[in-house]
Nucleic acid binder design. Structure first.
Lengths: 342, 342
DNA sequence: ATTAGCACTCCTCTTAGTTGAGTGCTAACA
DNA sequence: TGTTAGCACTCAACTAAGAGGAGTGCTAAT
């Protein structure tokens, strides 16, 4: 168990290092207002904290730097919840000024403002398209052998895909088909559609339409394709500002990771509410060993969920980011549920 | 006018520098197969070429480096058209293996393959949505005050946008409206729609539907919004490989530029056929003063046009990139016009 | 006209020395 | 007994000096 004084010193060191990105010496700590004891005492405590694994030295005679364990402790026990600046709140509110109707717009704007406010990189996941419910299904023929399938979901998202028509497919075939599909599929979620298409709808269609088999197969692969939630980025190059990323290789690896959808998706904790912090090697990705990722989720309507991640150096301003994400999560949730009800 | 020998030496120097990214000395040139004269002679010629502005020195006793004027001359006069490797051609062909129907897929894949083959960054512009022709117009109501407008274009693109419905808008109003819109707008290009909507369609609608005014306004702003061609990137971080970009600031500026749609769009020469090369400061953007940009266009169907850009260091392998772009342009054009006719 | 030879330049790499921030330990102090 | 002043020690960061080498420009010989 740490003594009060050790807690105080650990906090001071982490705060200081987060601010200045320089190893922190005993003298520097001793000069702080709230510290009443001498550098020598601090040195003794520091040595103890190092032995306990909370601090590290970059070399024998350098100041101390928080270890991952140190950050973890700081985040878990020393992070006094902090209000944020009214100017920041105002800026967040400005996202909702426009009376925009589209979810996508709001999320895009949120990504930009978050990256601006934190000076880190933000990633926002939109609603999971797979869970949207079908509002209308239609097919627009383009030529004798190609058509576009269009699915409008209840919250206004439009999913569309081209596919090939089987030969000898008539306009009346198409019409029948669309009617059947609408009858059967409206109200279902997109992820259920695939199953339904192949199971019940197919047999019904086969009774009415020639070569329904091919058709359904086209349609299934077509609607299945675009299955992930959309991803929005803010401040992709913000990390260039951080001294720990003055290394091209690190930056490159992270930027490359962000181009890979699957990797990005695995940064998140789906279906877990609250704010999650992963520090350095707590991240599964090797590329992220110098980064911390703070994630949270927000609601879109009653069923849908979106997610937010902030990526920064392990020396991230946790206090501020957590506070900002908290506001952001609540505001987005509120905006999207209010939007729904009127 | 340059002598034959000067041409030969200039070419050798540029080729060598493109390959090794190191200032080229007289000895190194003299060792080449095709060079029959001594280092001393080469030094004299080099001094002349420098005086003429084609070469530069990084310091008094360094080898020579091509100046922008040197690259320009090389590109204009010394670039013997070169066939490309059959393996490369094969890889390009692989884009079209899948029998993909969607334009977007092919372009996305092309961007990736181009960046892979060149090891530079590629940017592909899709067709200009504004010039697509309307195939079908429909409106799907979502709630009492919101709806989605959907425009399907003749080549299968789907443009959609949410908008607010005026109060007291009935289902039959909506139906009438959609009918009128389809009557009037099918076959028009998207860019013409805006004008038409405001001019003739508005007056017609006003006769049939209450508060058509508000409605049209919503619709115009809605369809106008998404007006640029889609942009696809390949190999965004490839420039990290180039020694001239081992400078974080340069990389950052270019990456930031690539996030700005308007800046990216201004890299292209719309409506000019052929292959264009802009070297260093010939680019309008200050951020690009160390880059060369090679652009070209391809056709999508009979009316539409897409564009390709490759961004690399001024020390770019012009010969190879030009050859690759030439193949790419023709293959894409062919694929998209063939696609149309069957 | 071409080229061998040579003095000269200047970048790059290495080594040595200096400075200064910071530590750990010991001994004195309250 | 906990705290602190004092001091020797460590090591990164900076500076200066010197060696090596790739390359040039000029001159004189071929």
């Amino acid at each position: 168990m740490l003594t009060n004084r050790q807690l105080q010193i650990l906090q001071a060191i982490v705060d200081d290092f987060i601010m200045f990105a320089q190893p922190v010496g005993s003298r520097q700590i001793s000069k702080k207002q709230e510290i009443t004891f001498s550098p020598a005492t601090i040195r003794n405590e520091m040595a103890d904290l190092e032995e306990l694994g909370f601090l590290e030295k970059t070399h024998t005679s350098s100041g101390r730097v928080p270890s991952e364990k140190g950050y973890r402790f700081y985040v878990d026990h020393l992070l006094s919840p902090q209000g944020i600046n009214s100017r920041d709140i105002q800026q967040i509110q400005s996202i909702f000024n426009d009376r925009l109707v589209e979810v996508e717009h709001i999320i895009r704007k949120s990504a930009n403002i978050l990256s601006e406010l934190t000076s880190y990189t933000s990633i926002l996941l939109g609603p999971d398209v797979q869970r949207h419910r079908v509002k209308r299904f239609s097919i627009v023929p383009l030529s004798s052998d190609a058509a576009v399938a269009i699915i409008v979901t209840s919250n206004g998202h439009v999913e569309n895909r081209m596919f090939n028509l089987p030969p000898n497919f008539t306009a009346s075939d198409l019409e029948k088909m669309v009617n059947i599909l609408n009858e059967r599929l409206i109200g279902e979620s997109l992820e259920d559609i695939h199953k339904k298409l192949e199971a019940e709808v197919l047999t019904v269609l086969q009774q009415h339409v020639q070569s329904a088999d091919d058709f359904i197969r086209s349609l299934v692969t077509a609607t299945m394709h675009n299955s992930e939630s959309k991803i929005f980025y803010g401040g992709k190059t913000n990390m260039f500002n951080q001294p720990e990323f003055h290394d091209l290789n690190k930056v490159r690896m992270i930027l490359d990771l962000m181009e890979t959808t699957s990797q990005v998706q695995s940064l998140f904790h789906p279906n877990e509410s609250g704010i999650h912090i992963r520090i350095g090697s707590e991240n599964k990705q090797l590329e992220m060993e110098n980064c911390s990722v703070i994630t949270t989720t927000y609601s879109i309507g009653e069923e849908q969920q979106g997610a937010i991640a902030i990526i920064g150096p392990t020396r991230m301003d946790y206090k501020r980011v957590v506070a900002l994400l908290d506001v952001m999560r609540m505001d987005l949730t509120q905006a999207f549920t209010k939007n729904r009800s009127d």
